[in-house]
């Protein structure tokens, strides 16, 4: 149980080599070994989506993934959204701020990572497509209206940025 295994992962562009226990979840690895606390844990059984990250561009529940399963992968977490050079928020982050897409903010990193995947694949989602994409993330505070507005706003801003 306590045998350790070496893994190599790239997180938000930074490569890491670490020895981890086989049973360590990826959420715990990111949060407590790499000190990337923005990925939150709300249920640890795959329902709430607070722990959503991108593994090689695909959204995944880091609470249901073991760190060893991520060996060789490239991971994006909420900490990877902000522009490191300028310090500016990512358009998705800024849209959540501007359209009041959060209250306590605990679910928000998960929603934003899901949104990132959605908008990467579908820059002009309809409301139904947005709902379909976000259907696996729970928010107990907002009633989702501000979140829907935020995603619409982010989509339009990213499209404009692309056109420019």
């Amino acid at each position: 149980m306590t045998t350790k295994q070496q893994i190599r992962v790239t997180v938000n562009g930074t490569p890491y080599v670490r020895e981890v226990e086989a049973r360590l979840t990826l959420a715990d690895f990111l949060r407590h070994e790499l000190h990337l606390g923005g990925t939150h844990v709300g249920c640890e059984h795959g329902i709430c989506g607070a722990c959503t990250i991108l593994i090689d561009g695909r959204s995944a529940r880091s609470c249901l993934t073991l760190a060893v399963q991520a060996d060789g992968a490239s991971i994006t977490t909420v900490e990877g959204l902000r522009n490191r050079e300028t310090g500016h928020l990512h358009p998705i982050q800024q849209s959540f701020v501007d359209a009041h897409g959060l209250q306590c903010g605990f679910c928000t990193p998960g929603f934003m990572m899901t949104t990132l995947e959605l908008l990467n694949e579908n820059p002009s989602p309809s409301d139904d497509e947005i709902k379909e994409a976000l259907g696996g993330n729970l928010c107990r505070c907002t009633g989702y209206q501000g979140i829907l507005d935020s995603v619409r706003l982010a989509a339009s801003r990213l499209r404009t940025a692309q056109d420019a």
Binding site: R31, L36, G37, G38, T39, H40, V41, T77, V78, E79, L81, R82, L89, Q93, Q94, F96, V97, D98, H100, L102, C104, G105, F106, T108, P109, M112
Partner: peptide, 17 residues
Amino acid sequence: KRIEDPALVSGTVEFID
């Protein structure tokens, strides 16, 4: 706009865990 939000969307707020 809420003054709480930039830190919350950045994932830097110190929730207890």
